[in-house]
Amino acid sequence: MYRRRLLWALVPSLSVSVAGCNDADPMNGPDQGSEATPDGRAEIVDHELVREGAGTDEETVAIEGAVRIHEEGLQHVELRGRFFDPEGEPLDTTFERLQEIEVGTQPFEIQYPEIGPAAAAVDGYEIEITTVI
Results as ranks from 00 to 15, higher is better:
residue 3 R to S: 08
residue 5 R to F: 06
residue 6 L to F: 07
residue 7 L to H: 01
residue 7 L to S: 00
residue 8 W to C: 01
residue 10 L to D: 07
residue 13 S to E: 05
residue 14 L to D: 06
residue 14 L to Y: 05
residue 16 V to C: 13
residue 19 A to E: 13
residue 19 A to D: 14
residue 21 C to D: 15
residue 21 C to T: 13
residue 22 N to P: 12
residue 23 D to R: 15
residue 25 D to N: 12
residue 25 D to I: 07
residue 27 M to F: 10
residue 28 N to S: 13
residue 28 N to T: 14
residue 28 N to I: 12
residue 29 G to T: 09
residue 30 P to R: 08
residue 31 D to T: 08
residue 31 D to Y: 05
residue 32 Q to I: 14
residue 32 Q to E: 14
residue 33 G to I: 09
residue 34 S to C: 10
residue 35 E to T: 13
residue 36 A to K: 13
residue 37 T to M: 05
residue 39 D to I: 04
residue 41 R to M: 11
residue 42 A to L: 04
residue 43 E to F: 08
residue 44 I to T: 03
residue 49 L to D: 00
residue 50 V to K: 04
residue 51 R to L: 08
residue 51 R to S: 11
residue 52 E to M: 07
residue 53 G to F: 06
residue 54 A to L: 10
residue 54 A to V: 12
residue 54 A to E: 12
residue 55 G to C: 08
residue 56 T to P: 00
residue 60 T to V: 06
residue 61 V to K: 01
residue 62 A to L: 05
residue 62 A to M: 07
residue 64 E to C: 00
residue 65 G to L: 02
residue 65 G to H: 00
residue 66 A to R: 03
residue 71 E to F: 10
residue 71 E to S: 11
residue 71 E to M: 10
residue 72 E to H: 12
residue 76 H to W: 13
residue 78 E to R: 08
residue 79 L to C: 03
residue 80 R to G: 01
residue 81 G to S: 01
residue 82 R to P: 04
residue 83 F to L: 01
residue 83 F to Q: 00
residue 85 D to I: 11
residue 87 E to T: 14
residue 88 G to F: 02
residue 89 E to T: 15
residue 94 T to E: 03
residue 96 E to Y: 09
residue 97 R to T: 15
residue 98 L to S: 05
residue 99 Q to W: 09
residue 106 Q to Y: 02
residue 107 P to G: 02
residue 108 F to Q: 05
residue 109 E to N: 02
residue 110 I to P: 01
residue 112 Y to M: 06
residue 119 A to F: 06
residue 120 A to T: 14
residue 121 A to G: 07
residue 121 A to F: 06
residue 123 D to G: 03
residue 123 D to N: 08
residue 124 G to M: 02
residue 124 G to S: 04
residue 125 Y to W: 07
residue 126 E to K: 13
residue 127 I to G: 00
residue 132 V to E: 15
residue 132 V to K: 10
